[in-house]
Design a protein around this nucleic acid. Structure first.
Lengths: 263, 263
DNA sequence: CGCGGAATTGAAAATACTCAAAATTAGTGG
DNA sequence: CCACTAATTTTGAGTATTTTCAATTCCGCG
């Protein structure tokens, strides 16, 4: 399973050199073979339907760190499925400041918010060198009539996106910073678990600033939260490497059952 | 246009008596006649497609104030389009507290978050005596193959729901309370405008507590914000009746361009 | 080795919360 | 229609958490 290997491998941390060009086999990667099948549009589809999908997905792109996949206001043409790597999406509010609306990883679909207005409502930026499948929406649309299973999956993914965002609202509606942070870590953990990665050890792909922005807190607060959680022995954290030592305590904090004093 | 009249009329404020049973004509109300056409699933459809939709929408329900339309975990069967009235949807977080995820009014679709998991992820409660169209999702699904325009509208509405929620995230990511509150009022205003109502004068349908919950603030804070905005002369507010006297100032506050001192 | 962005730390200031009490309003029944 | 009760809203004072602003350290990268 060469593709599994490819995806589970953490990309190198040296971002100085541009990523190597795709090999032919990578370019030819199909939904049929993709390791993200179970999370992405082809989930559970019959071979024939997956082949239809493979026919319209002509392009897979490498996006380098800090490069943007699309910008706010760009006319909507494609959805993008993340093959590997991480992205952040953000809007610009009226006073020009960014607000991060989500972090996306392998198996996630980018651009769903653009369908309604025919323009992208967010900017999507790669947090590391990443790869996406370009899914022309017009093509997808024509498939819907022929592959009901695909249409179901699409509706499922849109609906899940709505649910996911409601959960973020749940997070942001929570007032205490320690709780927001615990929810954030717990969410990350379960995302990695669902993707077959280790749930308790991972590399953060985003800066403290980004985390703060996402959680409605300052980067200083994030820094202090890391310290506090480390001092309590709940996590080990060195730079962007994080180990959850007491996932249950984090869950308790996240649920509001438990709380901790500052300092 | 009898239906327009029906919808534009503010429901009586005396909630003691149960709403009168629907008249026959109200029961027979069709998408073809509905005043919410331009915002709801039938927007821009040809007559034939609207008729298809009318065939599957058999039931329209009156929901009394404080009654719930569906509960968290109920198996997903129907979407509901709000015909008139107001709803709130909320989730219950792990420690058992409510978090309001949205307020819905005429033309909005309820239940989109349930498609992915086949169960409702929220509870939807009427904030006043309201009426909804019951849209069986199985039926809608069978129409998709025959009415591409309908499918487009459905995708558009789902996508808009995603965008709407991202805007709430934008709101909640904002740290200062006065700004959250200004955004809240401004959003309400534009919702009413889009529905052909007066943008600057409206009745709040939700309690201070609900507003606070939605905005991640306490009801005391909401109370003080009302006072502050009134003292500045930006709004007039008596109980739940609100007049926006300086909508531009509110917009400036919402955008972060302007800010005001406490007291 | 040195530069620059990111992260950390400290101290002061400010905003929003908590708790408690009072006032107002909505809903009920006589 | 009025009076009564419960619920919501307002107000006040004190507290706590988080932000700000500034200075420092750390680290990756040329």
């Amino acid at each position: 399973m060469p593709h599994t290997l490819l995806i589970d491998t953490e990309p190198s941390l040296s971002y100085a050199v541009p990523p190597p060009p795709l090999t032919l086999r990578q370019m030819r990667a199909t939904c049929t073979d993709c390791a993200m099948q179970q999370l992405c549009l082809p989930m559970g589809l019959e071979k024939a339907d997956k082949n239809l999908l493979d026919k319209i997905i002509r392009n897979r792109h490498r996006i380098c760190r800090d490069e943007s996949l699309y910008q706010i206001g760009d006319p909507f043409k494609n959805l993008y499925a993340v093959r590997f790597g991480h992205f952040k999406t953000y809007q610009i509010n009226a006073s020009g400041k960014q607000q991060i609306t989500g972090f996306q990883m392998a198996g996630d679909l980018l651009g769903l918010d653009a369908i309604g207005a025919s323009r992208y409502q967010n900017e999507a930026v790669a947090l590391e060198d990443s790869e996406v499948c370009e899914i022309p929406f017009a093509g997808l649309d024509t498939l819907f009539g022929h592959a009901p299973g695909l249409l179901h999956n699409f509706h499922k993914m849109m609906s899940q996106e709505i649910t996911r965002e409601q959960n973020v609202m749940l997070l942001l509606g929570t007032m205490r910073a320690e709780r927001r942070f615990a929810i954030f870590l717990d969410n990350l953990s379960s995302h990695y678990m669902r993707r077959g990665r280790c749930a308790n050890t991972f590399q953060l792909r985003m800066s403290r600033e980004d985390i703060g922005n996402y959680l409605g807190l300052t980067n200083e607060s994030i820094s202090r939260l890391f310290l506090r959680f480390k001092q309590h022995g709940w996590i080990k954290a060195d730079k962007r490497e994080v180990h959850l030592l007491e996932p249950d305590v984090l869950k308790a904090l996240a649920s509001g059952t438990k709380s901790c004093l500052p300092i």
